[in-house]
């Protein structure tokens, strides 16, 4: 799920950036530092949308660095247990398949793939129904349900299932 929230961060700035462009430099550094990172609490920071407020800078003894408390608005993405996600399949093997929804890596084990879908090996491994009408392979788009999440410092892992109503392939690259 995406959220638009306000977060706060203490930014340290090198003295060489002091001057007319201090604010710009601060924001550029903030974007570089924050965008694309994860936190267990908020999930993945997709983009900074605005700066709420920059507090007073504190000069640190000895180094000359200045610490600014910055409040910024950003879009974060965090998967929840029970959430329905759409994801792109990245790898299919006999244990199940891996899919990605942006920064989130999802594994769907073959226990959680409907029983009528069988694994087919070969140069393009896939899961196919017996009549061949539905096929999950690399680059397929699937709708899945999250049943477990873990958010690390830089990565988000999820366990997913497609063994439920209205879940499964929503777009097959081979057919288009």
């Amino acid at each position: 799920m995406f959220f638009h929230i306000v977060l706060e961060r203490n930014m340290q700035l090198h003295p060489r950036h002091f001057g007319r462009h201090l604010r710009d430099n601060l924001i550029a550094k903030l974007m570089k530092d924050v965008e694309g990172t994860c936190s267990g609490r908020h999930g993945f920071v997709v983009a900074i949308t605005g700066i709420e407020n920059i507090g007073k800078g504190m000069i640190r003894d000895g180094t000359g660095f200045v610490t600014f408390p910055v409040k910024y608005q950003c879009v974060v993405f965090r998967p929840f247990k029970g959430e329905i996600l759409e994801a792109v399949v990245t790898m299919v093997n006999k244990m199940g398949f891996f899919a990605e929804a942006g920064p989130v890596q999802i594994f769907v084990s073959n226990h959680l793939i409907p029983d009528d879908m069988e694994f087919q090996s070969g140069d393009a491994p896939n899961y196919t129904t017996s009549d061949g009408s539905v096929k999950i392979q690399k680059d397929s788009e699937v709708r899945l349900k999250i049943i477990g999440t873990r958010v690390d410092a830089t990565e988000i892992f999820c366990i997913g299932t497609i063994k439920d109503d209205f879940l499964g392939v929503i777009n097959d690259p081979a057919s288009t």
């Binding site: 594994f107 084990s109 226990h111 959680l112 049943i147 477990g148 892992f157």
Partner: peptide, 9 residues
């Protein structure tokens, strides 16, 4: 997978 059970999460 990622220290979560692949069956029950």
């Amino acid at each position: 997978f990622g220290a979560m059970c692949i069956l029950c999460g």
